[in-house]
């Protein structure tokens, strides 16, 4: 059983990762950490850089849950997360949610919303504590 975690290097991503790891322990599965980026800005804070990825992998390697980290580059972040979930036959997708203002909801396309609607497996949406 595989659990896919949509990860971004901030507290929302960490919350999702924690929840994903907890689920994996309960269900006895492995975790695939996905960080997707459109790669269209010179700097993307939600992109997992080389150094940060190595750090994350080192941190995950010490855990009791089998994990792997995937960084994907694609036109649409939500689509990429769903695609990876399909590919590994995920039993669950875990994503982090952040608070959004009314204006923000209108202007920004929500990645979380798209994953919720498009994933073919249950999705667990986590809020950062």
């Amino acid at each position: 059983m595989t659990i896919v975690v949509g990860y971004v290097p901030n507290r929302h991503g960490e919350a999702a990762l924690d929840a994903g790891l907890a689920e994996a322990r309960l269900r006895g599965g492995d975790v695939v950490v996905v960080n997707a980026t459109r790669g269209d800005a010179l700097v993307d804070r939600r992109h997992l850089g080389d150094a940060a990825a190595a750090e994350l992998e080192a941190r995950l390697a010490g855990l009791d849950v089998p994990t792997s980290v995937r960084r994907v580059l694609g036109a649409d972040v939500a689509e990429e997360v769903v695609r990876v979930a399909d590919e590994v036959g995920a039993a669950l997708v875990v994503i982090g949610l952040r608070h959004r203002s009314a204006v923000g909801k209108v202007l920004m396309g929500s990645v979380a919303q798209r994953v919720l609607l498009e994933a073919r497996c249950p999705v667990l949406a986590v809020k950062a504590g």
């Binding site: 459109r38 269209d40 036109a75 649409d76 202007l107 920004m108 396309g109």
Partner: peptide, 9 residues
């Protein structure tokens, strides 16, 4: 054309 998907914005 350059790949943005947020047409409304």
């Amino acid at each position: 054309a350059l790949g943005s998907r947020t047409l409304v914005r």
